[in-house]
Simulated scan of single mutants.
Amino acid sequence: MKKIAILGSTGSIGTQTLDIVREQKDIQVTALAAGKNIRCLEAQIREFSPEVAALWGEADARSLRELVKDLPVRIVSGMEGLLEIATMPGTEILVTAIVGMLGIRPTIAAIEAGKIIALANKETLVTAGHIIMPLAREKHVSILPVDSEHSAIFQSMNGEREHGNEIHKILLTASGGPFRGKKREELKQMRVEDALKHPNWSMGKKITIDSATMVNKGLEVMEAKWLFDVEPEQIQVVVHPQSIIHSMVEYKDGAVLAQLGTPDMHLPIQYALYYPQRRNLSGKRLDFYQLSGLTFEKPDMETFPGLKLAFQAMERGGNLPTAYNAANEKAVALFLERKISFPEIPELIGICMEQCRFAENPSVEEILATEAEAYALIESRW
């Protein structure tokens, strides 16, 4: 039995990971962690029988303990609980699917404990890639990407570097989101409901808004730099509205390798859990006879400045990606609360990137301090 723990088990990636557990039958769930969805976590505990489960707040954890007192499961809470789950003896793979920089410390702890990381938490590498990747190499720990784009790149690179084949560039595909083709003036009128209508993917609210602003692609660009050890100028974003090609790699000889499939997160999740083995997976398959065509466009970074700001943050480095990420988290929350307009999201990111104190090689403490500083800058305006 393959033993896994899931941080963020009640979210989109977490629940789809559990779909794979149901289908494959040879995975044992040792631990589950969620933010505050008590009822969903209770149902998961009853179905998957983990040894440990966590909720962020201690009050919620107390409520859960009462609900599952008939079961042999230990309920923990807070960062202490996440760290315990991340380092549990016997667990082979930690699926990190929690949102935000909350994932940094548990990921570091899991690497220190020798766990394989199935990474679905972009912010960990965006803000702390300079800490995470050298540590993973030192501890000989694999970090396997769960994002569909990064999984596609990983699959397209499989075995190539071992043979000395050099990458020329990474072609990171983007759907363009619900506002593809619109101009900046039009975006001022876009409501929360409009931004949440993604044309291809079913995701949580935060990541769906990030897709609409193209900030999500900016985060993926920064993550790709660390995951695949490439320079910023080797990463190119290509808008591909059909979301059939999940990303591509161009090699020095001009060959381009790509991974194609339906827009379904189950495949990259399962690939990370069983790498390098490919298992049968139920669901819709790609039918080339039904494809009307595949199209590609250059991203409009003037209309969607969040993507341009990501390249700027990546090129300067230090704690600038943290300022970018933290400002976006706060700005998206304000947009979902209908307190700011859609174009104000990247505006606030730019302000925080300019005004946060710069740190060249930030420690985890400095990363978290930058997050707090960006939050405070935005809160001072509202």
Rank of each mutant, 00 (worst) to 15 (best):
206 K>L: 15
306 G>I: 10
276 P>H: 06
284 K>G: 11
312 Q>M: 12
279 R>S: 08
180 R>E: 10
361 N>Q: 15
258 A>C: 04
349 I>F: 10
131 I>A: 10
247 S>I: 12
345 I>H: 07
35 G>I: 01
170 I>C: 00
205 K>L: 05
163 H>D: 12
117 I>Y: 10
280 N>M: 13
135 L>I: 09
370 T>C: 07
334 L>V: 12
364 V>I: 12
314 M>N: 07
10 T>K: 03
143 I>L: 10
381 R>C: 14
216 N>L: 04
264 D>T: 06
350 G>D: 13
286 L>M: 06
155 Q>Y: 05
243 S>R: 00
190 M>D: 06
138 E>P: 04
164 G>Y: 02
139 K>R: 13
30 T>I: 14
148 S>F: 06
213 T>C: 08
361 N>S: 12
196 L>Y: 11
173 T>G: 04
256 V>N: 01
99 V>I: 13
127 T>V: 12
234 Q>P: 02
346 P>S: 13
244 I>R: 03
63 S>G: 07
359 A>Q: 15
238 V>F: 02
369 A>E: 12
284 K>V: 14
230 V>D: 02
241 P>D: 02
352 C>W: 08
103 G>K: 00
184 R>N: 09
166 E>P: 06
288 F>R: 08
372 A>C: 04
349 I>P: 14
216 N>F: 02
207 I>T: 07
306 G>L: 09
113 A>H: 13
165 N>K: 14
62 R>D: 13
75 I>L: 01
167 I>C: 00
83 L>F: 03
26 D>N: 06
154 F>T: 06
266 H>P: 12
261 G>E: 03
254 G>F: 00
221 V>W: 00
366 E>Y: 07
71 L>F: 03
322 T>W: 15
239 V>S: 02
185 E>H: 13
123 E>V: 03
25 K>Y: 01
188 K>Q: 13
378 I>S: 10
212 A>D: 04
114 G>W: 04
46 R>W: 05
150 H>G: 06
131 I>W: 07
287 D>P: 00
126 V>I: 15
42 E>L: 09
367 I>K: 08
128 A>V: 14
182 K>I: 05
342 F>P: 11
94 L>P: 08
320 L>C: 14
295 T>W: 07
56 W>Y: 15
306 G>K: 08
88 M>L: 12
149 E>R: 03
48 F>S: 00
60 D>K: 05
179 F>Y: 06
242 Q>A: 01
255 A>V: 11
28 Q>Y: 08
306 G>N: 06
193 E>T: 15
221 V>N: 00
304 F>W: 06
311 F>H: 00
10 T>C: 04
